[in-house]
Amino acid sequence: NKASVVANQLIPINTALTLIMMKAEVVTPMGIPAEEIPKLVGMQVNRAVPLGTTLMPDMVKNYE
């Protein structure tokens, strides 16, 4: 099973992601793959992301 990106803390709306906000975890359903973490740094979330939430592509602005 591949790990996904999971919020390590509450991430407020429009916050630019940093490494300490994210962790890799095997979850179902899968979200953004953990190997994308370096690419996510500096990208903004378009909603508040609660602690423990799996990051999905539609939660990150301009994620492709």
Score class of each variant (00 low, 15 high):
N1W: 13
N1M: 13
N1R: 04
N1K: 14
K2R: 10
K2T: 13
K2F: 06
K2P: 10
K2M: 12
A3P: 09
A3N: 07
A3D: 12
A3E: 10
S4Y: 04
S4L: 01
S4E: 00
V5E: 00
V5N: 01
V5P: 02
V6Q: 05
A7R: 01
A7Q: 00
N8R: 07
N8P: 07
Q9M: 12
L10S: 07
I11H: 01
I11L: 07
I11M: 09
I11P: 00
I11V: 15
P12Q: 10
I13L: 13
I13K: 13
N14S: 07
T15P: 00
T15I: 05
A16M: 12
A16N: 11
L17R: 00
L17G: 00
T18M: 09
I20T: 14
I20G: 14
I20C: 03
I20L: 05
M21G: 13
M22C: 02
K23I: 07
K23H: 12
A24F: 04
A24T: 10
A24E: 14
V26C: 03
V26S: 11
V26E: 12
V27L: 03
V27K: 05
T28A: 15
T28D: 09
T28P: 03
P29T: 09
P29C: 03
P29N: 06
M30P: 11
M30I: 12
G31C: 02
G31P: 01
G31I: 02
I32V: 15
I32Y: 03
P33E: 04
P33M: 09
A34D: 06
E35V: 14
E36V: 07
E36G: 15
I37D: 00
I37C: 02
P38Q: 12
P38F: 09
P38E: 09
K39E: 09
K39C: 02
L40E: 01
L40H: 01
L40P: 00
L40F: 02
L40K: 00
V41L: 11
G42P: 00
G42R: 14
G42E: 09
M43R: 14
M43L: 12
N46R: 08
N46E: 06
R47W: 04
R47H: 15
R47D: 11
A48V: 15
A48S: 06
V49L: 15
V49A: 04
P50C: 03
P50E: 13
L51C: 03
L51T: 14
L51P: 06
L51Y: 15
L51V: 12
L51H: 08
G52W: 14
G52A: 06
L55P: 01
L55H: 01
M56L: 08
M56S: 10
P57I: 04
P57G: 10
D58I: 05
D58F: 11
D58Y: 13
D58C: 03
M59D: 04
V60Y: 02
K61W: 12
K61C: 02
Y63I: 04
Y63N: 07
E64W: 07
E64T: 11
E64L: 05
